[in-house]
C-alpha cells in the first residue's frame, strides 16, 4: 500500500506541478481571476446594488446566495448524519456495557467554573455582534454561529454534557437547526410568492419598509441570522454526539 500511495502521490504531484508555470505570479493584479469582469463587478457594483460595504458578505448572501443556502444545508446534513450514525437507544448502550450512563465528573472545579461563568455571556454577546456586524466588517452568520456554538461547548467542557444539555436539549437543537434553514429558504420562497425568482430579495421591498436596494441589505441580514441559528445548533450537536459517542441519556 505504501509504494502504491507513493506512486499515486508522485504522479498526481507531477501532474499538478506541470501547470504551475502557466499560472500568474503571486499577487498579480492582472491575472484573469482578478481582472475578469466577475471580480471587478463584485468590487465596484456591490455597494451601489445592495448598499453593503462588505463585498464578501454581499457575494455570499446575495449574488451566490443559492450556494450559501446549500452550504447551510451541508452543515445541517452533517448534524443529522452524525446523529443518525452514532445515536442509539439508552437500552442498547446498557446491553453493551452494563453501565447506565457514562460517569461524568460530579462537582466542577471552582476556578474553572467561575471563569467560564464569566466568559460564556461575553462570548455569546460577541457572537451576536459578529452576526449583526457582518455587513460592515469581517463576520457573518457562519462565523457568529460557530462562536455561539463554541460557548455551549465551553459550558459542556467546564461542567459536563448534561449541564449544557439542560440549556440546549437535543430536540431544541434539531428544531433550531431546522428553523435556521427555514428562515433562509423562507426569504427565498417569499420572493417566489411575491412573483420574483427564488432569493431575488429586491421584490421584498413590497413587504418591508425599505427601498429595493435596502431590501437586499436587510434580507441579507435576515438570511445571516438563519445561518447563525443552524450553525450554532449543529456545532453543539456535533460536539455532543461525538463526545458522548451517541449515548446521551435523553432520547428524542
Amino acid at each position: 500500500m505504501k509504494s502504491f500511495a507513493l506512486i499515486t502521490v508522485i504522479l498526481t504531484g507531477w501532474l499538478l506541478l506541470s501547470a504551475v508555470s502557466d499560472f500568474p505570479s503571486w499577487g498579480d493584479t492582472e491575472s484573469p481571476a482578478n481582472d475578469y469582469r466577475l471580480s471587478q463587478h463584485y468590487i465596484t457594483e456591490t455597494f451601489p446594488e445592495s448598499s453593503v460595504p462588505n463585498m464578501v458578505t454581499a457575494v455570499l448572501a446575495d449574488y451566490r446566495g443559492y450556494d450559501t443556502m446549500f452550504e447551510t444545508v451541508v452543515i445541517f446534513v452533517a448534524g443529522i448524519a452524525i446523529m443518525s450514525i452514532l445515536r442509539r437507544k439508552p437500552l442498547d448502550y446498557l446491553k453493551d456495557t452494563g453501565r447506565e450512563t457514562r460517569s461524568y465528573k460530579k462537582d466542577p472545579d471552582l476556578i474553572i467554573d467561575t471563569t467560564c461563568r464569566l466568559m460564556i455571556p461575553i462570548i455569546q454577546l460577541f457572537a451576536l455582534y459578529v452576526v449583526a456586524h457582518g455587513h460592515h466588517s469581517p463576520g457573518g452568520g457562519f462565523q457568529g454561529g460557530v462562536i455561539f456554538g463554541a460557548s455551549f461547548i465551553l459550558l459542556a467542557l467546564s461542567r459536563d454534557l448534561q449541564a449544557a444539555q439542560r440549556w440546549v436539549p437535543e430536540k431544541r437543537v434539531l428544531n433550531l437547526a431546522g428553523i435556521g434553514i427555514l428562515i433562509y429558504s423562507g426569504f427565498g420562497f417569499a420572493c417566489m410568492i411575491l412573483g420574483s425568482n427564488f432569493l431575488d430579495y429586491e421584490i421584498l421591498h413590497k413587504i418591508m419598509p425599505a427601498t429595493p436596494v435596502e431590501a437586499r441589505s436587510h434580507s441579507m441580514l435576515g438570511v445571516e441570522i438563519g445561518v447563525a441559528f443552524t450553525c450554532t445548533a449543529i456545532m453543539f450537536s456535533i460536539y455532543s454526539n461525538l463526545a458522548s459517542n451517541g449515548d446521551m441519556k435523553e432520547t428524542l
Partner: peptide, 28 residues
C-alpha cells in the same frame, strides 16, 4: 441540483450534499 445547475462551483456544493447524505444513509 447537480443535474440542473449551470454553475461549476455550485455543482461541487451539491455533489457534497448528495455525498454526505449517502455516507449517512449507508452508514445506518
Amino acid at each position: 441540483g447537480i443535474v440542473l445547475t449551470g454553475d461549476a462551483f455550485n455543482l461541487y456544493v451539491l455533489i457534497e450534499i448528495s455525498a454526505l447524505t449517502s455516507y449517512a444513509l449507508i452508514g445506518m
